[in-house]
Protein backbone atom coordinates (compact mmCIF):
# COMPACT_ATOMS: atom_id res chain seq x y z
CA UNK A 1 0.00 0.00 0.00
CA UNK A 2 1.44 3.28 -1.09
CA UNK A 3 1.76 5.91 1.60
CA UNK A 4 3.14 9.41 1.60
CA UNK A 5 6.92 9.36 1.17
CA UNK A 6 7.21 5.67 0.40
CA UNK A 7 8.12 3.91 -2.82
CA UNK A 8 11.57 5.42 -3.31
CA UNK A 9 12.85 2.85 -5.75
CA UNK A 10 14.59 3.94 -8.93
CA UNK A 11 13.03 2.30 -11.97
CA UNK A 12 16.02 2.89 -14.21
CA UNK A 13 13.82 4.40 -16.91
CA UNK A 14 14.56 7.78 -18.45
CA UNK A 15 12.69 10.93 -17.44
CA UNK A 16 9.70 11.61 -19.71
CA UNK A 17 9.20 15.31 -20.45
CA UNK A 18 5.66 16.64 -20.92
CA UNK A 19 4.21 19.46 -22.98
CA UNK A 20 3.50 21.88 -20.16
CA UNK A 21 6.84 21.42 -18.40
CA UNK A 22 7.76 25.06 -18.92
CA UNK A 23 4.83 26.48 -16.94
CA UNK A 24 6.07 28.46 -13.95
CA UNK A 25 4.73 27.08 -10.67
CA UNK A 26 6.79 28.95 -8.06
CA UNK A 27 6.83 32.56 -9.23
CA UNK A 28 9.24 33.79 -6.55
CA UNK A 29 12.01 31.29 -7.26
CA UNK A 30 11.05 30.78 -10.95
CA UNK A 31 10.59 27.03 -10.82
CA UNK A 32 8.76 25.26 -13.63
CA UNK A 33 6.45 22.26 -13.61
CA UNK A 34 9.08 20.23 -15.46
CA UNK A 35 11.71 20.92 -12.81
CA UNK A 36 9.34 19.75 -10.09
CA UNK A 37 8.47 16.62 -12.05
CA UNK A 38 12.20 15.97 -12.57
CA UNK A 39 12.86 16.38 -8.84
CA UNK A 40 10.21 13.76 -8.12
CA UNK A 41 11.84 11.52 -10.72
CA UNK A 42 15.17 12.14 -8.95
CA UNK A 43 13.75 10.66 -5.76
CA UNK A 44 11.94 13.46 -3.94
CA UNK A 45 8.79 11.97 -2.45
CA UNK A 46 7.63 14.45 0.19
CA UNK A 47 6.72 18.11 0.09
CA UNK A 48 9.69 18.92 2.36
CA UNK A 49 12.11 17.14 0.06
CA UNK A 50 10.85 18.97 -3.04
CA UNK A 51 11.00 22.27 -1.18
CA UNK A 52 14.53 21.71 0.05
CA UNK A 53 15.87 20.33 -3.23
CA UNK A 54 14.38 22.95 -5.57
CA UNK A 55 13.32 25.82 -3.35
CA UNK A 56 9.64 26.30 -4.27
CA UNK A 57 8.00 28.08 -1.38
CA UNK A 58 11.26 29.56 -0.14
CA UNK A 59 10.94 32.95 -1.76
CA UNK A 60 9.41 36.10 -0.30
CA UNK A 61 5.84 34.84 -0.45
CA UNK A 62 6.82 31.65 1.43
CA UNK A 63 4.64 29.36 -0.64
CA UNK A 64 1.40 31.35 -0.57
CA UNK A 65 1.17 31.15 -4.35
CA UNK A 66 2.66 27.78 -5.25
CA UNK A 67 1.83 25.42 -2.37
CA UNK A 68 -1.44 24.08 -3.75
CA UNK A 69 0.10 23.50 -7.18
CA UNK A 70 3.21 21.73 -5.89
CA UNK A 71 1.03 19.43 -3.77
CA UNK A 72 -1.05 18.71 -6.85
CA UNK A 73 1.97 17.82 -8.96
CA UNK A 74 3.31 15.47 -6.27
CA UNK A 75 -0.13 13.85 -5.96
CA UNK A 76 -0.36 13.30 -9.68
CA UNK A 77 3.18 11.97 -10.09
CA UNK A 78 2.95 9.54 -7.16
CA UNK A 79 -0.69 8.54 -7.66
CA UNK A 80 -1.58 9.51 -4.10
CA UNK A 81 -4.75 11.47 -3.23
CA UNK A 82 -4.23 15.18 -2.59
CA UNK A 83 -5.61 14.77 0.93
CA UNK A 84 -2.57 12.66 1.84
CA UNK A 85 -0.10 15.37 0.78
CA UNK A 86 0.57 17.94 3.53
CA UNK A 87 1.31 21.60 2.85
CA UNK A 88 4.46 23.57 3.57
CA UNK A 89 5.32 23.84 7.24
CA UNK A 90 4.58 27.38 8.37
CA UNK A 91 7.28 29.11 10.38
CA UNK A 92 7.72 32.42 12.16
CA UNK A 93 7.66 35.20 11.19
CA UNK A 94 4.35 34.84 9.35
CA UNK A 95 5.14 38.01 7.41
CA UNK A 96 8.60 39.57 6.95
CA UNK A 97 9.61 41.66 9.97
CA UNK A 98 12.70 43.87 10.19
CA UNK A 99 15.56 42.81 12.43
CA UNK A 100 15.14 46.00 14.44
CA UNK A 101 11.48 45.30 15.12
CA UNK A 102 12.04 41.63 15.85
CA UNK A 103 14.86 42.39 18.28
CA UNK A 104 13.01 45.19 20.02
CA UNK A 105 11.76 43.48 23.15
CA UNK A 106 11.14 45.19 26.43
CA UNK A 107 10.58 43.79 29.93
CA UNK A 108 7.09 45.31 30.17
CA UNK A 109 5.98 43.59 27.01
CA UNK A 110 7.12 40.24 28.34
CA UNK A 111 10.33 40.21 26.36
CA UNK A 112 13.96 39.79 27.36
CA UNK A 113 15.46 36.76 29.06
Amino acid sequence: MKTYGSDRGFSGEAFVPKEDDDVIICRCEEITRGEIRKAIYDGMRTISEIRRYLRPGMGPCQGMTCERNVRGILARETGLPLSQIPGYRPRSPQRPVTLAELGNESEEEGGGV
Binding site: M58, T98, L99, A100, G103
Partner: peptide, 19 residues
Protein backbone atom coordinates in the same frame (compact mmCIF):
# COMPACT_ATOMS: atom_id res chain seq x y z
CA UNK B 1 18.03 39.47 15.48
CA UNK B 2 19.74 41.73 18.02
CA UNK B 3 23.01 39.84 17.60
CA UNK B 4 23.01 40.25 13.81
CA UNK B 5 22.28 43.98 13.99
CA UNK B 6 25.10 44.25 16.54
CA UNK B 7 27.49 42.82 13.96
CA UNK B 8 26.07 44.66 10.95
CA UNK B 9 24.35 47.89 12.04
CA UNK B 10 23.29 48.54 8.43
CA UNK B 11 20.95 45.54 8.54
CA UNK B 12 18.51 47.03 11.08
CA UNK B 13 15.85 47.58 8.40
CA UNK B 14 16.38 44.26 6.64
CA UNK B 15 13.46 41.91 7.05
CA UNK B 16 13.54 38.38 8.40
CA UNK B 17 11.54 36.11 6.10
CA UNK B 18 11.71 32.75 7.85
CA UNK B 19 13.20 31.08 10.90
Amino acid sequence: ARALVDLFPCLADTRVVRG
